[in-house]
Computed example of a mutant assay.
Amino acid sequence: MSNPQSHKPHDRLAAVLSTDMKAVNTMIRERMASKHAPRIPEVTAHLVGAGGKRLRPMLTLAAATLCGYTGPFHIHLAATVEFIHTATLLHDDVVDESKQRRGRPTANLLWDNQSSVLVGDYLFARSFQLMTEPGSMRVMQILSNAAATIAEGEVLQLTAAQNLSTDENTYLQVVRGKTAALFSAATEVGGVIADADEAIVKALYDYGDALGIAFQIVDDLLDYQGDTGTTGKNIGDDFRERKLTLPVIKAVALADETEHAFWKRTIEKGKQEDGDLEHALELLHKHGTLVSTQADAKAWAGRAKTALAPLPAHDIKDMLIDLADYVVSRLS
Rank of each mutant, 00 (worst) to 15 (best):
T26K: 01
T26E: 13
M27S: 08
M27A: 01
M27W: 01
M27N: 08
I28C: 05
I28S: 03
I28W: 04
I28V: 11
R29G: 10
R29S: 15
R29T: 15
E30K: 09
E30Q: 07
E30A: 07
R31C: 03
R31E: 10
R31I: 03
R31S: 06
M32I: 09
A33L: 00
A33I: 06
A33S: 13
A33C: 04
A33H: 12
S34G: 06
S34A: 08
K35F: 09
K35E: 14
K35G: 07
K35N: 11
H36R: 15
H36C: 06
H36T: 13
H36G: 14
H36I: 12
A37M: 13
A37Y: 08
A37E: 04
P38E: 07
P38Q: 09
R39W: 06
R39I: 14
R39A: 15
I40E: 08
P41F: 14
P41S: 14
E42Y: 00
V43R: 09
T44Y: 11
T44Q: 08
A45F: 00
H46K: 12
H46D: 12
H46R: 14
H46L: 10
H46I: 12
L47Y: 14
L47P: 13
L47I: 06
L47E: 14
L47K: 06
V48I: 15
V48T: 07
V48A: 07
G49D: 12
G49P: 11
A50S: 15
G51S: 05
G51Q: 13
G51F: 04
G51Y: 09
G52F: 14
G52L: 12
G52T: 11
K53W: 13
K53R: 07
K53V: 11
R54G: 05
R54D: 01
R56W: 09
R56C: 00
R56E: 03
P57R: 00
P57M: 05
M58V: 05
M58Q: 11
M58F: 01
L59I: 01
L59S: 05
L59Q: 02
T60M: 01
T60F: 04
L61P: 13
